[in-house]
Design a protein around this nucleic acid. Sequence first.
DNA 1: CCGTTGACTCTTT
DNA 2: AAAAGAGCCAACG
Length: 103
Amino acid sequence: MAKKTLNFNEKVWELTKKIPKGKVSTYKELAHALKTRAYRAVGNALNKNPHAPIVPCHRIVLSNGSVGGFAHGSKKKMNLLKKEGINFEKENIQNFEKVLYKF
DNA sequence: CCGTTGACTCTTT
DNA sequence: AAAAGAGCCAACG
């Protein structure tokens, strides 16, 4: 046996859950933590996110510092992040590197 | 099984 | 600096 007990998507959700409040992460960091380059697959996994309230998918943003996309609307995502302590400059995150959580 | 799609990222123009 | 193209991986039809 000794196979991957967790599927690719589950790994993404597990890592996302590990992100502390007031911090954010990027798809690239997630993919890098998974030892893969499936940046898009990570986004796809979060989009399907079956653990909606359990996995803080809104804490995942683009490596560019933009909020990226969100199943409920990027506006909602930004609003949620603001409540978590993340500030925004127009459509980009302020102190992006300071609130960026790395694995 | 092959082609398309997607909440991405990097490189080149 | 901004825009376009190429690359990458998993899920779906």
